[in-house]
Amino acid sequence: MQLERATVLEHIPIHGGYNLLRMRAPGVAPRVRPGQFIHVKIPHLEECVLRRPFSVFRADGDALAILYKDVGKGTRTLQYLKAGETLSILGPLGHGFPDPNPAAYPIIVAGGYGMAALYLTARTAPVKGIAFFGGRAAKDILCVSDFEALGWTVRVTTEDGSLGRKGIVTDALDEWWLNESAGRAPELFACGPGGMLKAVAHRAIERGWTAWTSMDNSMGCGVGACLTCVLKVREGEGWTWARACREGPVFDARAVLWEEIE
């Protein structure tokens, strides 16, 4: 990990209020592993003492990109950043997704912009599998063509039925399991809201699948000192705290105490 002053290369709206921020970060970008994140000091927001964590969507050479939407003061201010401006980033941080097991069939499950944390896994996976994208509406479904261009099959579900199948993302996963899995042992890579991760984890545990879940906990320092982002994980018969920023954000689904996650 390192602190670096990155330069904005491109900052463009995608759709539905989502933005793509691409920056030149020659120190951080080449070291990013799939599922890791960067911690960003939002420029022009001096009254906020904390950085904001973002999954790295893409890392190509000296450049990396994040995807975000306006969810609060930090991301609202970030929107005004222009190409050529600089920002302080800390990264790459955390334990990301492991390399996919080449003997398993890889499955991606993403809620909303959770897909941003999964693109690098999709790109490096030796076997191209199936990706389930879920969101409230069509505007929450992003970058389908990017995943398809990598050779992945993408299945979309929206809660309002405005794109793809109507329903929630785990419905589509269940359907695949019943009708198409053909005995293949899947390995799941998931990122999205807590409720979605919990539903994915329950299925994985019940069916004996391996599942890796990226936890979207509220974060402080990003390096393991402040102990803000902790979640309960199993330890022997009991539990212990794990830091989403250090031990995570990606955890083996069997390790997490899902009953504590809303």
């Binding site: 001096e46 009254e47 803000t228």
Partner: peptide, 9 residues
């Protein structure tokens, strides 16, 4: 948790 909350400055 939650253990921290950001406030003005």
């Amino acid at each position: 948790t939650p253990r921290t909350a950001e406030t003005a400055s």
